[in-house]
Amino acid sequence: MPTDTKRLPVPETSICPSTLIEDISAKKLPLISNNKRRDDRLCTQLRHVYAKLKVISQAQGSAYIEIGNTKVICSVYGPREVKKRDEFSMDGQLCCDFKFATFSCPQRRSHLSDNEEKELSQQLLNALSPAVCLNKFPKARVEIFALVLENDGSAFSAAINCASLALVDASIELYDIPVAACVRYDGVNLIVDPQLNEEYSHQESNLSEENGQVLVAYLPVLKQISALNHVGCLSSKVLNQSMKLCIEATQKMHTIFQECIKEKVKSIMD
């Protein structure tokens, strides 16, 4: 068993008390009743979005985003010179790191990146890189760090949004601002921007049923999709529908972000 010598010793095992309390009532509750979701939203309704640029004084660019209770902070450093590099390339390099804070989820997370975080870091990179003008900073690297402070569903799409706002704040040249949104399908209904108790999970799903979740990162001005992530099992018809819903949601978010950026530009001009 690997031990972390750089941190104070922790007990080998510990149990989260919430796992002991069987929360049957919440899980058995239908996603939709009387056309309303568990938190009284309509199927296509987004949660409240709050975004702020320039929150970290030390970073070139940074952003903070709150979608409902989901809170993500992101900072961008660079372009910085790359000292060691295997291959010469005239294109710049993007480097993404996605992390959940240890206290952000119902289950405590480890300080070290787990497989899920590593995979999501890679996905974040894939979603952002089509939008960044990499040819503008040859031989250099831009580093993007996203940290989830609280995960109440759709944390990854919030991280993509936060990262693209931070890139804007850092004045990195972009072709477009990638905006992401998430849609969950439970076999009957399509719901936009799922919160934590509405999200798809492998444990709960029944493989015989159609059930899944789709995430789309969209470039609203170019009208292109930069990333599409899909888990679960969906028919192509439902997939099409959910992609359409995702794109509608990203367009709503895009107007919010535009306001946010406009405000920042105004404050610089004054």
Binding site: K6, L8, P11, Q60, I73, D97, T102, F145, L147
Partner: peptide
């Protein structure tokens, strides 16, 4: 009680990712 101070690379340009 296990306290831990984490300085992620997010917070300052002087910090690289890696062990604390």
């Amino acid at each position: 009680i296990v306290p831990n101070v984490d300085l992620p690379p997010l917070c300052s340009s002087a910090i690289q990712s890696g062990p604390p």
